[in-house]
C-alpha cells in the first residue's frame, strides 16, 4: 500500500500516525511533508528508524520549491511526478493521510 503524507512533521502528528499505524510498504512525502526528509530535521531520526518497514520517497519538485533540494536525508528515494504515478500503479491502493 502507498501512504501519501502532506503535512510538516513539526506541526502535525500525521507522519507519526502513518508510520505507527501502517504495516509497511511505500510512503511518499509531498507538499509540506517533504520537510521530514531533510538532513538535520528533528523528524529525520523518526524517518530513519521507520526505514526497516517502509520505503520512503519524497516528491523532489516540492522539496526543491522549498529550497531544500540539496538536503535530502540519507535512505530517502527522490521521485518526480512520473515517479509518483508509478508508485500509485505499483501499489493496489493508496491512502492520503489528510
Amino acid at each position: 500500500m502507498l501512504h501519501i503524507v502532506n503535512k510538516s512533521p513539526l506541526t502535525s502528528v500525521t507522519l507519526e500516525s502513518c508510520l505507527n499505524t501502517a504495516t509497511g510498504g511505500d510512503v511518499l512525502l509531498i507538499e509540506d511533508a517533504v520537510y521530514a526528509a531533510t538532513r538535520g530535521s528533528a523528524a529525520e531520526a523518526k524517518l530513519q528508524s521507520a526505514m526497516g518497514r517502509f520505503k520512503i520517497h519524497v516528491l523532489m519538485p516540492d522539496l526543491e520549491a522549498r529550497g531544500l533540494g540539496d538536503r535530502l536525508a540519507e535512505g530517502v528515494t527522490p521521485v518526480d511526478y512520473s515517479g509518483f504515478v508509478e508508485l500509485t500503479v505499483s501499489n493496489k491502493t493508496s491512502q492520503s493521510w489528510l
Binding site: 504495516t23 491502493t93 493508496s94 493521510w97
Partner: peptide
C-alpha cells in the same frame, strides 16, 4: 487498512 480496495480520507 491493507485489506481495502479504496481508502478515502
Amino acid at each position: 487498512m491493507d485489506e481495502q480496495d479504496v481508502v478515502l480520507s
